[in-house]
């Protein structure tokens, strides 16, 4: 419902039936489509632009939310969020390295550079916090700041030395987080990575619950802690990298949504994971819809809006942790 409704919003005048039937025509279900195919231009607008964008927003929303939920449990730190921990900075470094330094000799795209950069920064972060052994929230967050600043500095150096005004401007937009580039081909890859990762993470729900009182406690409850941690970190790294590579740096959603869902549904991950994934998808779809329509024809980067909402939420969580 959200998918259809969000596809509706925009500068062109489209009705809900148009959206549904366009989608049905394209997936080969012409027989049950409520209306005739739309004119080519509108059809392309819906099928090639709006619809993939809504789907990408959903996928990225799921990935960042689930990633935040898992990181908060594994690092035993309520302030953990992929953006705050510097993964997005690593992604941008990877992206500029490919774009401006020509690393990969043209065989790598901006997204694959971002994907690799995200994985690298995630690895650096995990190494610095001992794979989650460091449980002091302040230290984890400060380590994230450190990773984030370090990669941001590398990115700036590359941009200053090699960039021209145009590429710098385009890149800044990507840095702020935007879903405007959604196209079918990368979406299918991104979406499948995220889907597989999120489903696999669901298998570790009991481990995530048991982590609440620490590693040894979880082990004494029969959890194979090392295996669970390694798998969770790999899966989280992959879905986060996939999301960041597709959308740039969309911050705070991994912090905002899981905490909101916890207040409503409690801390049990069997419920928390699928529910926050759903809420994350719906949330980002609507925020992105707002981002592209509120000031039309100008578009706000969606990351700016999530930051506007997320920063106060971070302050609230921080207050609760402090008390």
């Amino acid at each position: 419902m959200t998918i259809v409704a969000a596809t509706l919003f925009g500068t062109a005048n489209i009705g809900p039936l148009d959206v549904i039937s366009t989608i049905l025509h394209h997936v080969g279900l012409d027989a049950i489509a409520p209306t005739e195919p739309l004119p080519k231009l509108l059809d392309a607008l819906i099928w090639e632009s709006r619809f993939p964008r809504v789907l990408l927003a959903g996928a990225v929303g799921i990935a960042l939310t689930v990633s935040g939920t898992v990181l908060q449990s594994v690092t035993r730190n309520p302030l953990a969020d992929p953006y705050l921990l510097g993964v997005s900075s690593g992604a941008s470094t990877g992206a500029v390295a490919v774009l401006l330094l020509g690393i990969g000799g043209g065989s790598l795209s901006l997204s694959s550079g971002a994907f690799i950069g995200a994985l690298v920064s995630f690895g650096v972060l995990l190494a610095l916090i001992g794979g989650g052994r460091v449980s002091n929230p302040a230290r984890v967050v400060l380590t994230g700041v450190l990773v984030s600043q370090f990669f941001a500095a590398i990115t700036s150096v590359i941009l200053m030395v090699n960039g021209d005004a145009n590429s710098t401007r385009g890149f800044t937009y990507w840095l702020l987080g935007s879903l405007a580039g959604a196209r079918w081909e990368p979406l299918i890859l991104t979406g499948s990575l995220i889907l597989i990762g999120v489903v696999a993470i669901q298998f570790f729900a009991p481990a995530l619950d048991a982590f609440t009182f620490g590693w040894d406690s979880a082990a004494a409850l029969g959890i194979n802690v090392t295996a669970a941690r390694v798998w969770l970190m790999i899966l989280t790294a992959v879905i986060t990298a996939a999301a960041v590579a597709a959308s740039g740096a969309i911050g705070f959603i991994g912090l905002l949504v899981p905490h909101a869902v916890r207040i409503l549904a409690g801390p049990a991950h069997r419920v928390l994971l699928p529910l926050s994934a759903l809420v994350g998808a719906i949330f980002l779809i609507w925020v992105d819809t707002f981002a592209r329509t509120a000031f039309a024809p100008n578009e706000l980067p969606v990351g700016v809006i999530t930051a506007l909402l997320g920063a106060p939420a971070f302050a609230l969580v921080l207050r609760r942790v402090g008390s």
Partner: peptide, 23 residues
């Protein structure tokens, strides 16, 4: 295995903490 052991042996630690809002 860890799991089978946990069905007969329980451990109580001295001062555990959690940041989750568990009942």
């Amino acid at each position: 295995t860890r799991r089978v052991l946990a069905r007969r042996l329980a451990v109580v630690e001295q001062d555990v903490s959690s940041h989750d809002n568990l009942t």
